[in-house]
């Protein structure tokens, strides 16, 4: 499986590491040419205003949208989720409008309010998922064709899926629990998802 990771800014190296650990081929994407032959694309965590500008500047918006509309799997984490949204609560950044959700940036406050919390993810069995939320966005509108896979105790959705499009407020690439990456690789056409697959080695900065 060839999974691209948008590498214009953010923690793309961490995503690439998890993908390689679970047997996928990870390809850094900085220019439109790098999208050729991919089975799926991850838009990583980072600064969404920066991602938005660099995607415009290097002509990545249209080909990524085409990838999504042609049925390829696309997953956004944190800033990546903001980029996938149909609308956000501010004028800047400009999202790709691929998923029928509304998103609020920095929904929990400033960095001192960043947090870790266990989450139940639908289809992942009884083992809770370790959610790491860093200046995280939250979903404030869920369209008709969108499934909520996980929500905070107050009911706010933090993981959603629409067909082969996936978005998470939190950062699976910062944990040793590769289940969300395995789930995404399965969506992209890889081996079917096994929620009991073993954890990977402890995460580290890449």
């Amino acid at each position: 499986m060839n999974i691209g990771v948008l590498a214009v800014q953010g923690d793309f190296a961490e995503h690439c590491h998890v993908l390689r650990t679970i047997g996928a081929t990870a390809i850094e994407v900085r220019l439109p040419d790098h999208l050729a032959g991919l089975d799926g694309l991850i838009i990583p965590g980072g600064e969404s205003t920066t991602l938005s500008r660099l995607m415009s500047l290097y002509g990545l918006r249209e080909p990524v949208a085409r990838m999504a509309s042609s049925g390829k799997a696309v997953w956004g984490t944190c800033a990546g989720m903001i980029m996938l949204a149909n609308e956000i609560t501010e004028a800047d950044p400009v999202p790709l409008q691929l998923m029928d959700v509304g998103v609020q940036r920095n929904a929990f406050g400033r960095q001192v309010d960043s947090f870790e919390q266990a989450l139940a993810i639908r289809g992942f069995g009884d083992d809770e998922y370790h959610g790491i939320f860093i200046r995280a966005p939250v979903i404030i509108r869920v369209g008709a064709g969108v499934d909520v896979l996980a929500a905070l105790p107050d009911g706010r959705p933090v993981a959603v899926q629409q067909g082969k499009l996936l978005a998470t407020s939190f950062h699976p690439e910062l944990t040793a629990d590769a289940r969300v990456h395995r789930y995404f690789v399965a969506l992209a056409g890889g081996p079917s998802f096994d929620p009991d697959a073993p954890a990977i080695a402890a995460p580290r900065v890449r």
């Binding site: 800014q9 953010g10 980072g46 600064e47 960043s114 870790e116 910062l174």
Partner: peptide, 17 residues
């Protein structure tokens, strides 16, 4: 909140910037 994971994780989001 205020864990080393969310503190160092924030810096990871700044990478390449």
């Amino acid at each position: 909140t205020g864990t080393f994971t969310v503190k160092s994780g924030h810096a990871q989001m700044l990478k390449g910037g």
